[in-house]
C-alpha cells in the first residue's frame, strides 16, 4: 500500500485519545515553558553579552569571545553527565571549594560536622531550562549584526547625548528586532525538540517534555506491540506548535539571518 497520503478515518479518534488518555497535553505545556524560557533567556543574555563585547573595550574581550565557540563545540549532549552532576546539586562547587581550602576542616572541628550545601534543580522547569541557555550561537549572531552597523551611528548617538543605556534601548534594540525574532525561533525549536537533557533531568512523567513523553508512549517491555496509531497521532499533535511558530515568524527568520537591513 505504500505511504498513506491522508490521515485515515481513525485519526481524530486517536487525537482525542492523545488528549484524554496520555499526559501529552501537560507535557506539551512543559515543552512550551522550556522552549519559551530557553528562547527568552538566550535572547536577553546573547544580546547583552554581544553588546558588551562589541561596544566596550573589555579587558580580555577577545579571550572571552574565543571561549564562546567552546559552548558550541561542546554541546549539552557531550557534557550531559557533568551537567547532571551540577544540576543534582548546584552548590557542589562551593562544597568542593570549602573542602579544598580546608575551611570545612575548621568548620567540622568547631561545629562537629562539615558544611554540605545542597540544592537540586533536577525535575524542575528551571533545571530543564538553565543548561540549554548556556549556548553561544546567539552571542555570535548579535555580534555579527552589531559589527556591520555603521560605526558612525554610535558616534552620532553620542553626539546627540545618548549614553550607553539610551543607545541600547533607543537605537540598538529597535534595529535588532529581526535578529531577535530569528534567534527566538531557532532557540524555541531547539528547546522544543530537546530530547536527551529533558530525559535525564526529569524523573516524573508530569515534568517530562512532549518529545520525551512521545517516546515513552512506546512500551519498553519486549514482545508488546506499540500502539502506533496513537504514537503517530501524538507526533502530529506535538509538531503543530513548532510548525505554527515557523509559519508566523519565518519572514523574520530569513531577515534576521541574512543580517542586512535595507
Amino acid at each position: 500500500m505504500g505511504l498513506a497520503r491522508y490521515p485515515g478515518d481513525q485519526f481524530l479518534t486517536n487525537v482525542v485519545r492523545i488528549f484524554s488518555e496520555t499526559l501529552i497535553p501537560q507535557q506539551m505545556a512543559n515543552s512550551l515553558v522550556v522552549a519559551v524560557g530557553d528562547a527568552l533567556v538566550t535572547c536577553v543574555l546573547s544580546f547583552i553579552s554581544a553588546y558588551a563585547l562589541v561596544f566596550f573595550p573589555v579587558r580580555w574581550g577577545s579571550v572571552v569571545f574565543a571561549l564562546i565557540p567552546a559552548t558550541i563545540m561542546l554541546p549539552l549532549d557531550i557534557r550531559v553527565i557533568t551537567t547532571y552532576q551540577v544540576a543534582s546539586n548546584v552548590l557542589s562547587p562551593i562544597n568542593a571549594l570549602l573542602d579544598i581550602t580546608g575551611v570545612n576542616g575548621l568548620i567540622a572541628q568547631v561545629f562537629g560536622a562539615p558544611v554540605m550545601l545542597e540544592w537540586s534543580v533536577l525535575n524542575t522547569h528551571f533545571g530543564l531550562i538553565a543548561p540549554l541557555v548556556a549556548h553561544g550561537t546567539g552571542t555570535f549572531l548579535f555580534r555579527q549584526f552589531f559589527l556591520v552597523l555603521p560605526r558612525d551611528l554610535v558616534k552620532a548617538a553620542r553626539m546627540d547625548g545618548a549614553g550607553p543605556i539610551r543607545f541600547l534601548f533607543d537605537i540598538l534594540l529597535p534595529l535588532s528586532r529581526p535578529s531577535f525574532a530569528a534567534l527566538f525561533v531557532l532557540t524555541f525549536l531547539g528547546g522544543w525538540t530537546q530530547y536527551l537533557w529533558p530525559l535525564v533531568a526529569s524523573s516524573t512523567p508530569n515534568m517530562q517534555t512532549a518529545v520525551v513523553g512521545l517516546a515513552r508512549l512506546a512500551p519498553d517491555t519486549e514482545g508488546v506491540m506499540p500502539d502506533f496509531p496513537l504514537i503517530m497521532a501524538g507526533a502530529v499533535v506535538v509538531s503543530i506548535i513548532p510548525l505554527v511558530m515557523i509559519a508566523v515568524l519565518q519572514r523574520y527568520l530569513v531577515r534576521g539571518l541574512v543580517l542586512s537591513e535595507k
Binding site: 558612525d152 558616534k155 552620532a156 548617538a157 553620542r158 553626539m159 547625548g161 534595529l175 537591513e261
Partner: peptide, 20 residues
Amino acid sequence: LEPKQRGCAMVFQNYALYPH
C-alpha cells in the same frame, strides 16, 4: 568634556541617520 557638553554638532560623511 563629553560631546553633548561641548555645544557642537557634527554631520557625518555617510549621514549616520537612525534608520528606524
